[in-house]
Design a protein around this nucleic acid. Structure first.
Lengths: 209, 209
DNA sequence: CATAAGGTTGACTGACCAGTCAATCCGAAA
DNA sequence: TTTCGGATTGACTGGTCAGTCAACCTTATG
């Protein structure tokens, strides 16, 4: 009954899309609700018809996307492939998410994931779930003997995710060159750094048990 | 002439120390200038006697500490030690900074370094300097043959610094256990992950040139 | 002791903006 | 056509806070 009305759910979507642009442009705090409404070509009050508050708009943007990420990671983990390829697939998904919608990823990273103090606090649990899934991949690889045991899985997950986020942040703030070539290169670099390490394979690596 | 007056420059220091506590507790945006004044046991207006604005207080906290970091990195780089030890020393300095004054590091990371959108934008240049110094260490190690050439120095620097910051963030938001043991362990983990990699030293690593 | 200069005080102002709400619009069903 | 209910509008309110400023205090020096 609602979907037949052309403008029904459409406006909600328009507001979300406009919020992505507005938040990306000015940042969540500096962005006024009227900026969102203007960007969506919609009256101020309509934002409050679809969302309880400005916060809820950001909540929605984050949760919709993060839930996709979580299910993608689970799906990747269930495949019968080496751990390195699993990590490559995860890095690939995140990098492609940025390639496909840089503004949305900018908002999620800058305003939620990296803003655990102000806003992301609410979502710490969700964010943790991602770390936990990645840690599990590492733990399994260690059990199979593919990964070393010197670093705990929880820690490895942090380092892996941290490296990805830092690269995206580099793109977001123009500290790193953009471009199709860089995107695929980044996936390979992240995995190579975390899995293979920076050092040349040295013979004295045998000194470790 | 100013330092003989016991309360002269003291108050400025008291305000900065109070700001660290206030910013750490409530976050920069949620923290009112009156919170800083209360925490410092000082009148509201005095904050504006020593600082032009609320922003300048945070600026000062960040720049004072970041400049120390930059000179420490330069100093470490000038030593004649292997790249892995240089990176260990850098990670060690940052971890020890957190151990010594967790609130200050929380403010710097959460409100500046990881808030490149709202506040850190002003300091992007300074932040970049740190990346550049680390990248140089990696580049030298590659030239000497100690590090592989598969990953660019700029990228390696990003991954290294990103891993450190992610670990501190884990501590800041209680996603990771604290404690003296964890601090030293973290230094080793970071360096081991980035330099040595997660994978066991495999024989087929010879397939790379 | 008088005076000047800078340190210190906190009430006040002006701007800003999230969220409310009463009025209006519009499509569908009777 | 009428009526109903959800969609849409945007002026308005209430509260919050950064920053100002005129008055007051403290110390040093002649």
């Amino acid at each position: 009954m609602a979907s037949t009305r052309a403008s029904g759910g459409d406006k909600r979507r328009m507001i979300l899309d406009a919020a992505v642009i507005a938040f990306a442009k000015r940042g969540f705090h500096a962005c006024r609700v009227s900026d969102i409404a203007d960007e969506a070509n919609v009256a101020y009050g309509l934002v409050y018809h679809y969302f309880r508050s400005k916060d809820e708009v950001l909540d929605t943007l984050f949760l919709d996307r993060w839930n996709v990420l979580l299910s993608v990671i689970s799906e990747i983990d269930s495949q019968e492939i080496p751990a390195r390829e699993k990590l490559h697939a995860i890095a690939g998904f995140i990098v492609d998410s940025y390639r496909h919608d840089p503004d949305l990823m900018k908002v999620i990273i800058v305003e939620v994931t990296r803003a655990a103090n102000s806003f992301g606090r609410t979502h710490l649990g969700k964010i943790r779930e991602a770390y936990a899934l990645i840690a599990e991949i590492v733990a399994k690889a260690q059990a199979e003997g593919a990964f070393k045991r010197e670093v705990t899985p929880e820690f490895a997950a942090l380092a892996f995710y941290g490296a990805i986020e830092q690269v995206l942040t580099g793109w977001i703030f123009d500290m790193l060159p953009h471009g199709e070539a860089e995107f695929d290169q980044a996936k390979a670099f992240i995995v190579e750094t975390i899995c293979g390490g920076l050092e040349v394979a040295a013979t004295e690596s045998a000194r470790a048990v």
